[in-house]
């Protein structure tokens, strides 16, 4: 349906095919179909083209045309993107999350981060909210978090520290073993698929079900030079299908949840916090981290403005529902 020249796009991604890549695979399929095979998009998995942390370098030197990136792998490279890693943002509802992040991907500060690397934000990976799985006594009260050894990174790690927990860093793949041997009490991961991917649920005794303490941004960015070199009809095709990509991603997460949740409910103790508890959580472990972040970044970009935009977009999304 779309006429155009032969174009071959290479997208760099680490790890195996998963929900994050399902959306782009769908896009690739559609591109081939719509352009009669002229516009080829191929995802190279397993870090074949670059390591996760070097994907932005690859775009800068024009080695490939697109890549997945995770903001927290290299905070210094994308300071504004670290807003996505702040704890207790109002993004627990997947619909709200999708709206807010699509808007943020066009926010000047977020765009500017990528501009430095010759990249443009394309579509969010919509990583689900984290929840915590743990071993031993379930933390039904806020005070129970005191002294727990928790694997949590970024803003979430800082939030846990405010509650008196001890932050542990270890590679995701070693988490289950650390659990098993009692070197760790709790671990936060995107809920539910990542817990299952790393077999954490097999070792845990309890899980938090509604903490929604925050998440991160692992999404897709394009090579700016390559994008600008595309014929307008291909550019249009890409931009018009962002919703499709996000929809496929969220369906993939939801399908995982449908499989995993019964498993969790069956074998683990479910921890559900009341609204008052959640409010207190936010007050004690959220606000201080936000303020610190805004303060630390206010000279680099309009940190306050970006942070406020998150809340403003969230309000818009809720109002539209």
């Amino acid at each position: 349906n779309i006429d155009g020249p032969k174009v071959f796009w290479k997208l760099s991604m680490w790890g195996n095919p998963r929900a994050l890549s399902d959306g782009m695979e769908k896009l690739s399929e559609l591109a081939a179909k719509e352009t009669d095979g002229n516009f080829q998009i191929k995802i190279f998995y397993g870090g074949q083209l670059a390591q996760a942390r070097e994907n932005l370098d690859g775009l800068t030197v024009n080695a490939f045309e697109g890549a997945a990136i995770c903001n927290f792998y290299h905070p210094g490279r994308n300071p504004a993107w670290m807003v996505f890693s702040l704890p207790f943002l109002p993004l627990g509802d997947p619909k709200v999350d999708r709206y807010v992040r699509s808007k943020l991907f066009e926010h000047p500060a977020i765009v500017a981060d990528m501009e430095r690397w010759n990249a443009i934000p394309y579509v969010s990976g919509l990583l689900p909210q984290y929840e915590v799985l743990g071993k031993g006594k379930a933390p039904n009260d806020l005070s129970d978090w005191e002294g727990l050894r928790v694997r949590a990174g970024g803003g979430l790690g800082s939030a846990m520290e405010k509650l008196g927990a001890v932050k542990q860093t270890l590679p995701a793949g070693e988490t289950a073993i650390a659990f098993q041997r009692g070197a760790l009490d709790a671990a936060a991961f995107p809920y539910t698929y990542a817990h299952v991917a790393f077999k954490i649920h097999e070792e845990a005794d309890w899980f938090t079900s509604n903490l929604a303490p925050g998440t991160s941004e692992c999404g897709w960015v394009f090579n700016k030079t390559a994008y600008e070199a595309l014929p307008p009809q291909y550019q249009e095709f890409l931009m018009n299908n962002r919703d499709l990509v996000m929809q496929v991603e969220q369906e993939a997460y939801a399908a995982q949840d449908q499989k995993n949740l019964p498993l969790f409910e069956e074998s683990l103790t479910k921890v559900t916090y009341s609204d008052e508890q959640l409010a207190e959580f936010r007050e004690r472990a959220g606000k201080p981290v936000w303020d610190e972040w805004i303060n630390a970044n206010k000279d680099k970009f309009d940190a306050q403005g970006l942070f406020d935009a998150v809340w403003q977009y969230a309000e818009e999304a809720k109002a539209a529902q």
């Binding site: 370098d57 290299h74 905070p75 210094g76 490279r77 430095r116 990174g153």
Partner: peptide, 18 residues
């Protein structure tokens, strides 16, 4: 050298302790 120069001029920090 260019790889170094990018991380020096565009900003780059480690995952955990930044």
């Amino acid at each position: 050298g260019e790889h170094f120069w990018r991380s020096y001029t565009l900003g780059d920090s480690t995952i955990d302790a930044e």
